[in-house]
Design a protein around this nucleic acid. Structure first.
Length: 360
DNA sequence: CTCATTTGACCTAC
DNA sequence: GTAGGTCAAATGAG
């Protein structure tokens, strides 16, 4: 199982570590200046914490994926939003087994290495159309599903051709709650995150949103802060609990990575930081940047929302960080890949608990 | 003109 | 055989 993802684990770790190093440097820079040092420090600490957790996730994933989902929101008391991601690792494993090389993904579903991230998104007021996650999707099909009231829509990454990104997702409106959408991600984005930084094109759900509510003509221009504010007040994200069998690949899509925080949160003390804001805020997914309101709904918002509540000026740093990480995660040729030689699992295992020393 | 969506047909897994 | 997933031509929007 581990073999299924170790091929990208090391680079990822390398990327994360470099990111932390960069933040450290930035931190030093800021600490020597007089530009609202407290705020900067807080932000930087949260950014660093985000990296730490990302590495923790990797560490966990390396030690046999365990269901690490339920506990995610434990640290969000009273949060109107809940989310977790569930991975259908069976699919991923299957995909790995059948994997014949990503360059030869011959359209047949079995060949595509995949995992699933299943989330349910529900908007309770005007905000509907929850389905953007910072990536740019193109609808390629729709199908009536047996026993389901509403058809299922199939999306694939618009960069499929240009960047050979084979990520797909399925969106289906919930039978019992028409405002709820079940979103199943499949495949992993291999594209750069350029699309994250650009307003994603409309999806059918967005069209519905426009038709039904149209309460924000400038959605795509809406800044993350505002978006998150809206989300916080208008959305509920309910995660769909899948079998939760094993988490073989806990770090790919944002909500998935969230799902890996679990109870070990308690072991992860960020003493200098407020629990709610810092921890959750720091967990803003590196894979996403707020592009549209929808883009935040099911993936980003829970944590960014928490962050939002905690520090209004925090999102900018995190957006920047998102960009940084996005660039890193997609830059397969990045020189920091060289770091992986120094990152054996044991080291990673120690990392989260040595963070202060690590950063020092 | 370009790109996204729609939709029926086709393919594959079960 | 059926259901789910994908393809690709037709169509529409910008």
């Amino acid at each position: 199982m581990e073999n299924g993802w170790s091929w990208e684990q090391k680079p990822l770790i390398g990327e994360l570590i470099q990111g932390m190093e960069l933040v450290k440097q930035l931190r030093v820079q800021f600490s020597t200046t007089s530009s609202s040092p407290e705020t900067v420090e807080t932000l930087l600490q949260r950014i660093l914490a985000s990296y730490e957790k990302a590495l923790m996730i990797l560490r966990w994933s390396g030690s046999i994926g365990q269901p690490q989902i339920e506990g995610v929101m434990a640290g969000v008391p009273g949060s109107p939003i809940s989310v977790n991601g569930s991975l259908g690792t069976d699919e991923f494993d299957k995909g790995i087994k059948d994997h014949q090389g990503t360059d030869d993904i011959s359209k047949k579903r079995k060949i595509l290495p995949r995992w699933t991230d299943h989330v349910r998104v529900r908007s309770e007021n005007g905000m509907e159309g929850p389905h953007e996650d910072g990536y740019s999707w193109r609808k390629y099909g729709q199908k009536d599903i047996l026993g389901a009231k509403y058809p299922r829509s199939y999306y694939r990454c618009t960069l499929r051709n240009s960047q050979n990104c084979w990520a797909t997702k399925q969106v289906q409106r919930s039978d019992d709650d028409p405002n709820a959408f079940d979103i199943t991600y499949r495949g992993r984005h291999t594209c750069s995150h350029a699309t994250n930084l650009v307003p994603a094109p409309s999806s059918p759900e967005k069209q519905e949103q426009k038709q039904n509510f149209n309460n924000n003509d400038n959605q795509q221009d809406q800044r993350p802060l505002d978006i998150l504010g809206n989300i916080g007040s208008s959305l509920r994200i309910v995660t769909e609990e899948l079998e939760n069998k094993e988490m073989s690949y806990p770090f790919s899509f944002p909500s998935t990575s969230f799902g890996c925080t679990k109870s070990e949160n308690s072991n992860f003390s960020l003493s200098t930081l407020d629990n709610n804001t810092s921890f959750l805020g720091s967990f803003s997914p590196p894979f996403l940047s707020p592009a549209t309101p929808e883009s935040n709904f099911h993936s980003v918002s829970p944590f960014q929302n928490s962050n939002f509540k905690g520090a209004h000026n925090g999102h900018r740093s995190e957006s920047d960080l998102t960009e940084i990480i996005s660039a890193n995660t997609s830059a397969t040729s990045s020189p920091i890949l060289d770091l992986d030689f120094s990152l054996d699992p044991a080291e990673i295992g120690h990392f989260p608990f040595d963070s202060s020393a690590f950063f020092a």
